[in-house]
Design a binder for these strands. Structure first.
Lengths: 347, 347
DNA sequence: CATTCACCTGACAACGTTGTCCAGGGCCTA
DNA sequence: TAGGCCCTGGACAACGTTGTCAGGTGAATG
């Protein structure tokens, strides 16, 4: 009864191989290969016999072996920060769409904003010999990628630039977006504007803060330290920041938020507040138009980010060898009400 | 100058192999393998020499080759409907988390609700010899998977059951959720309740419709054909359905929606309507609590779905051989206002 | 000093596929 | 009918890794 496994026991689940198919069809190994790959040079009759054997045995070509022989895996890795963040959904899909159109599969994983985990994941992908990598970096030092890139792994960074290496990157215009969002609030009469952003480790967080400061400076407005809060996007910290900005002796009359998670928390916090406070959020959020007032946002085009990055990656894989460069995707301010509220009466 | 590539040109980007490392370190091939895999039986001195060669050459083990030899790829495939749908984000992440804890990578793709594309994707994953599959099925016939399952590919279906084969499945309680949502509306005095759901090809859509009908029947209420709309979740179709239900001679006073995308569209449509209409939505949506009124929903626990499925998958991979079974994850009704509105005055 | 034994080390085959190359046979033409 | 050519088919090696097994060295023991 016992199926005699020779030494250990590879052969996956005892799947038939081309050899088995060849034996059953009474042809040579290579002929089976030709049929499977629709290569020319096989008589219709022989082809039919081989095909029957394939169907009868339930043979399916082992791409692992194929990859080993051919040197290309037809798969790319996508490392993002959190698979569950709605901002990355459209990006993920756009990348998948492009990969699919190039016949490649997508392997992905989350770094959870942890540089070590990012590196571990990226190197695991390299060990699988993905043809290319699209990375939303969590860390600031990507020199560990140098040997990989030199060995031919095409690499494109998205949303944030690479650290300490020269690589392609596709970024949103964080600085410009934050600046125009802030200017929008200033234009509506606000002079004390708060900024609540993500951790200063994160490139986009810093850029957005810079944009905010630039707009304030341009308007000749001071920025009080108590109006700026950077840190994790955990709801309780953000909530606390909102409360302290509003309870201060010189309370802010408007807030600029640094990303979608912060925006959502701030909307909640402001709903519980008595005076209206203006709000402009970075990243669009679903249903923002249905709230009262609608949430004015600086929308990023996540799908374009992903598509652009993936297209650049495949252009590299097709041999494009021009110097690495950065593409900046513009943002768009969508006015819905919350950013157009006038300053509420002072204390 | 020209690097003489012997025949074609495999060797990825001319990456060093264990052979190269061995030559440089002046040791045998297998010794390098031992060092790389931290196997016992290597003198510290030899190990150091090998390690130096590894670092100098920038060697990284080729897992493709390893996989071929070992028979396990330590990767699983996740096929879902749309990577960008916020409902699948937490599910995706939960699966990834479990995979990660088992040292496996996640390959994923979208079926776009197209059975052919689902099959194509699944078979591509099988050709890569993923160890297991987690599938949110788009099609209704999965007999094409039989040879794969027989060959040892562990397979778990999520959100919707497998078609025509006996396989593990982890489902939400669509029927019970829709029934309790409908009963909730009935309890608040509604007698004419509409249902707007997804395409009847989709299992959950049918189950939810069944739950709705069951609750109506249980309450002794008739269901007029014009109150039920099944089809794509495209906003214009859904919008049209809302309008026609509200403009009918016997207009509905409440609506039950079949999924998150429908709910969002209906919220928009109702906002433009003059009379208040009660609403209960299937699936929770972000910010639902901030709308006015808050949106009452039947919440599904997508993360639990994903985690449960992934855990079952790995239990199978670890050898669990009990009969395939179905797990049903309960839903939870979250009352926020929209589902508690009384029927508005008749015409 | 010889023998045993433990421990390291390396040669070799195998995983399943594809590229190369050659052999055999049929068919056309001279 | 012989010669040559094209078309089909198969043997073989190679991709980079790991399992098996045998050889070799040094220390410990009788």
């Amino acid at each position: 009864m016992a199926d005699t496994a020779r030494h250990s026991e590879p052969r996956y689940g005892n799947r038939p191989t081309m050899k088995d198919v060849a034996a059953r069809a009474g042809v040579g190994l290579k002929t089976v290969s030709r049929v499977v790959n629709a290569e020319p040079g096989v008589t219709p009759d022989t082809e039919r016999r081989v095909q029957e054997a394939i169907d009868a045995l339930g043979f399916r070509r082992n791409d692992s072996a194929r990859v080993l022989r051919k040197g290309r895996t037809a798969s790319i890795g996508l490392v993002l920060e959190d698979l569950a963040d709605p901002f990355y959904g459209p990006l993920n899909r756009a990348v998948e769409e492009v990969a699919r159109s190039h016949g490649a599969l997508l392997i992905n994983g989350s770094s959870a904003e942890d540089p070590d985990r990012e590196q571990e994941l990226v190197l695991a992908l390299c060990a699988r010999r993905v043809d290319g990598l699209i990375i939303i970096p969590a860390g600031h030092d990507h020199r560990y990628l140098e040997p990989e890139i030199k060995a031919g792994v095409a690499t494109v960074f998205v949303d944030r630039p690479a650290g300490k290496i020269d690589a392609d990157a596709v970024l949103s215009d964080s600085f410009g977006g934050a600046r125009s969002g802030t200017a929008h609030l200033v234009a509506h009469g606000h002079r004390r504007i708060g900024f609540i952003g993500d951790q200063p480790r994160i490139h986009t967080a810093v850029e957005r803060l810079r944009g905010y400061r630039a707009a304030m400076a341009h308007a000749g407005l001071p920025v009080d330290d108590s109006w700026v809060s950077l840190g994790t996007t955990a709801p309780d910290r953000v909530h606390e920041a909102v409360v302290s900005m509003l309870k201060a002796p010189e309370p802010v009359t408007a807030i600029l938020t640094g990303n979608n998670r912060v925006t959502v928390t701030v909307v909640r916090a402001l709903a519980a507040h008595d005076r209206p406070v203006a709000l402009v959020g970075f990243d669009d959020i679903e249903l923002a138009d249905l709230l009262d007032p609608g949430v004015t946002v600086i929308a990023q085009d996540a799908a374009t980010l992903g598509r652009t990055a993936a297209e650049r990656l495949f252009r590299r894989l097709d041999g494009a060898a021009d110097a690495p460069n950065q593409v900046v995707v513009p943002t768009r301010l969508i006015a819905r009400g919350s950013g157009e509220l006038p300053p509420s009466a002072d204390r």
